[in-house]
């Protein structure tokens, strides 16, 4: 089996709220391998988004380790973490964050150009990424000339353009109708099957069901998981919430 793209080991994240400390995550273990899509479900405040932020190096754990493509983020400088974020991690948010003044291909090429890739090469890679998610023909269109589903595909292409192999998606289907949402999940799934590792945060069971594994969070703890790997990788603390 190939090395995991993402590993969370004993990850805890405390947030201060006035005098009190709230533990957003408590001792979470999670491993995501290439080719795997893992969904994270749980009620509001269960720690889903915190988990995603930690996985993407946007936040730092209070305890435990976050390892992306073999690199322990705690051992890297801020600049090195930023480089991991640019080169290894792609984000898809509910709010697509496409720049309205740039065409689809320019939006997708942007992260590569920011990372120093020359214009022509970045655009070529961007076109390929757009082809891959089925919107190659829309490369020249601006965001307001595309449907919500098309824009979301562009956002996924942008998340995975270049060598990035970790895809983090936070409610990526939130603003879409059910059929379009399903198409987006097909694209995510296909990208993972092609070798990426994906973490999908969602509250829609129907969407989570596209994942290989579904991890259930409650009060910052992984209380259970479903899917074929559920037995192999036991993350279950005894007694559920205890």
């Amino acid at each position: 089996m190939s090395a995991p793209v993402l590993q969370l080991a004993g990850v805890t994240r405390d947030h201060r709220q006035g005098e009190a400390t709230v533990q957003a995550l408590r001792g979470v273990d999670l491993t995501v391998s290439p080719g795997e899509l893992v969904a994270v479900m749980g009620p509001s405040g269960s720690g889903k988004s915190t988990l995603l932020h930690l996985a993407g190096g946007l936040d730092t754990p209070t305890a435990g380790r976050v390892v992306v493509e073999g690199r322990d983020l705690a051992e890297l400088s801020a600049a090195q973490v930023a480089a991991v974020r640019r080169r290894s991690v792609g984000y898809v948010f509910q709010d697509l964050n496409l720049l309205p003044s740039l065409s689809a291909v320019e939006n997708v090429a942007l992260p590569l150009e920011l990372d120093g890739v020359r214009g022509g090469m970045a655009r070529r890679a961007a076109r390929e990424a757009l082809e891959e998610v089925g919107v190659g023909a829309l490369a020249g269109r601006f965001p307001d000339e595309m449907s919500g589903g098309q824009q979301q595909r562009v956002a996924i292409a942008r998340a995975l353009v270049g060598p990035r192999r970790l895809l983090l998606a936070d409610e990526p289907t939130g603003a879409l109708d059910s059929t379009t949402g399903e198409e987006v999940l097909r694209v995510l799934r296909a990208r993972c099957e092609a070798g990426a590792a994906g973490v999908l945060v969602t509250h829609e069971a129907r969407h989570a069901a596209w994942a290989d594994r579904v991890v259930f969070l409650r009060d910052g703890v992984v209380v259970d998981q479903s899917g074929p790997a559920a037995v192999a990788e036991s993350l279950l603390p005894a007694g559920g919430a205890g």
Binding site: R186, R189, A208, A209, W210, R218, D224, S226, G227, G240
Partner: peptide
């Protein structure tokens, strides 16, 4: 009876079934 555990056990089972259905559907 740990009701939350009963709920979670069912949710995991139903989700596993839903994952299988989704694969069939795809």
């Amino acid at each position: 009876v740990d009701v939350l555990r009963v709920v979670q056990t069912q949710r995991t089972a139903t989700m596993t079934g839903l994952q299988e259905l989704t694969r069939l559907k795809a």
